[in-house]
Amino acid sequence: MRDVLKLGAFLLIVAGIAGLGLGYVNSLTAPVILAQEEENKISGFQEVYSQAEEIKDESAKYLPDGADGIVREVNVAYQKGTPAGVIYMVEPKGYGGEIQMLVAFDIATKEITAIKVLSNKETPGLGAKCGEEFFSERFQNKSAEGVLELVKQEPVGDNQVMAITAATITSKAVVEGVNTAREHFVSNFL
C-alpha cells in the first residue's frame, strides 16, 4: 500500500512539473498566437475591403438569431464615422465540408469589392482551386442587387460567374455563400 502511495506521488510530481512547464511555455506563446490571429483577420479584411478606417464586428446587431444559417459574421467598415462597406464571413457547404470565406460589399457603389476563401476542405487540385485568385476575381465588382448565377461557359450577362472546371459543387457553394451575404446586405444596408 505504501508503495502505491509513493509511486502515485512520484507520478503526480512528474505531471505537476510537466503542467508547470507547459503553463510557462503557454504564457510565452499564447500572446504571439493571439496577435497573429488578430493580424490574419485584419489582413484578410483589408484584402477584401481596403478603404476602411475602422472595422467593427457587428454580428450581434445584424444577426439577431445568432450565427443561424451560413452567415457567421457581419463586420461593418467605417469611413469618417459612417458605414462605408460590409464584410461578411460565410460558411457555405461545399463538396468536402464547409468553405469559410469573406465577402465584402461597398455601400456607395452597391458592388462586391472582393471575396476571399479562408479555408476549404475541397478536393485538392479540383475544388480546392476555389481559394485561388483566378476564381475569386470572377466575383469582383459584380452588382450586389441582382442574384448571381453560375454558368459553365464564358459569362454573357453581368450577373453571371463562370464555374471552376470539374468542380461544379464547389463553385455552386461559393456562389451560394456570396448570394446569401448579398441578400443580407441588400435588406440591411441599402
Binding site: L11, V14, A15, A18, G21, L22, V25, N26, T29, A30, V32, I33, Q36
Partner: peptide, 16 residues
Amino acid sequence: VVIASFVTITEMVMHA
C-alpha cells in the same frame, strides 16, 4: 507524460 509535454510545447511553438 514526458512525451506529451514535449509534444504540447512543440505544438504551441509551431502555432505561434
